[in-house]
Design a protein around this nucleic acid. Structure first.
Length: 356
DNA sequence: GATCCGTGGTA
DNA sequence: TTACCAAGGAT
């Protein structure tokens, strides 16, 4: 049995999620809203994105407003959301779009823009412009792997899944309502065809689902075993002057946490640091107090940072980095791992809560 | 194709 | 607690 496009659309008309970046039923979404939300939603949950989306839209209501903003302001507003290359590409893309005057309306045109890959190009084309394509994200991969009972594990099965998924919108209804159809797939994946405990009893495609027929829906898609994350150790120093200002430095423009702010500290290595050794990398030779150890899990490594705190009357003139006034920490592009360090220091934690 | 790139929620 | 995973992209 072939999954019915009209059955899915009928379900969508009754159960669609109301999301800030979506148009009202029957209306066309604003391309800027679609683009901004799609970039934020890359590997990021709807619940997390909502607050950031609202802040961005308030500060940058249009593509032009975003294009004219300083890059560091955009990075600071993005801080905490992760995958910071997205913010840099978002800004670069806004400047291109401001020059071009409008969004490309084809998959290929969108695909050529920074930060927009195969998935996002299709998502914007379908949602904002009604192009009859299927954006294949994690939801669609899951749905397709179940509908067609594809048992080969990801990521090897990715190509096969994409090919089968592309047949889902063969119907006339799906092509006429390409925007709704794409979002219907997202909503189906988010609320019915979920990774764990799928609600097959409520699914509009239940009768067409090969995995459900075999009783293996919940076990799909299968995934190859993941490698264990390596562990890294480091130390960092929260140094304040008499005014309460904190010393920060900028990370390199490439690699992990590219271009973000951080507390000065040691390199991250495979073995723990003895405090006496770590202290040689302190920004100034003042007395530091150990606050504790924070653990932060990145995509591909687990980092354990020993956090030290110290005071000085005034910062030395030859230190690399910059002083951040005590009341401006929230305005910095501090990634979450550094905010965790800050949270060990009571004064700063209170300060952050009032501004963020 | 494999690896690198964040973070928060959940079972 | 560990492990998974969420509207992926760039190299």
């Amino acid at each position: 049995m072939i999954p019915s496009d009209s059955a899915l659309l009928h379900w969508y008309d009754r159960h669609r999620r109301d999301l800030p970046w979506r148009a009202r039923p029957g209306r066309q979404a604003t391309p800027y809203h679609v683009w901004l939300s799609e970039i934020m939603l890359q590997q990021t949950t709807v619940a997390t994105v909502k607050a950031y989306y609202a802040r961005f839209l308030e500060k940058y209501p249009t593509v032009d407003a975003l294009a004219q903003a300083p890059r560091d302001d955009v990075l600071a507003l993005w801080a905490g959301l992760g995958y910071y290359t997205r913010a840099r590409n978002l800004h670069a893309c806004a400047r291109l779009l401001a020059d071009q005057g409008a969004f490309p309306q084809t998959v290929d045109g969108l695909r050529a823009l920074p930060g927009i890959g195969d998935y996002t190009a299709r998502a914007i084309a379908a949602i904002a412009f009604g192009v009859p394509v299927i954006p294949v994200d994690g939801n669609v991969e899951r749905i397709a792997s179940r509908i067609f009972a594809i048992e080969e594990p990801l990521p090897q099965s990715r190509r096969q899944i994409a090919q089968r998924a592309a047949t889902l919108n063969d119907g006339a209804q799906a092509r006429a309502r390409a925007s709704d159809f794409a979002q219907a797939l997202f909503d189906l994946g988010a609320t019915i065809c979920t990774p764990r405990n799928p609600a097959c009893g409520l699914c509009p495609w239940r009768e067409a689902c090969a995995a459900h027929a075999r009783g293996i829906a919940a076990s799909l898609p299968r995934r190859a075993r993941k490698q264990p994350k390596p562990e890294r150790f480091g130390a960092c120093f929260i140094l304040r002057d008499a005014s309460g200002a904190v010393w920060l430095r900028r990370r390199p423009e490439t690699g992990l946490l590219a271009g973000m702010a951080e507390f000065p500290g040691t390199a991250w290595r495979e073995t723990p640091w003895r405090p006496a050794d770590a202290m040689r990398d302190a920004p100034m030779p003042v007395r530091f107090r150990e606050l504790g150890i924070i653990t932060h899990v990145f995509t591909h490594l687990t980092l354990r940072l020993t956090v030290f705190e110290g005071r000085t009357d005034r910062f030395a003139p030859d230190m690399a980095g910059f002083a951040c006034p005590a009341d401006n920490l929230a305005g910095q592009s501090l990634p979450t791992v550094m905010r965790k360090c800050l949270d060990l220091s009571q004064d700063s934690a209170t300060l952050l809560e009032t501004t963020r």
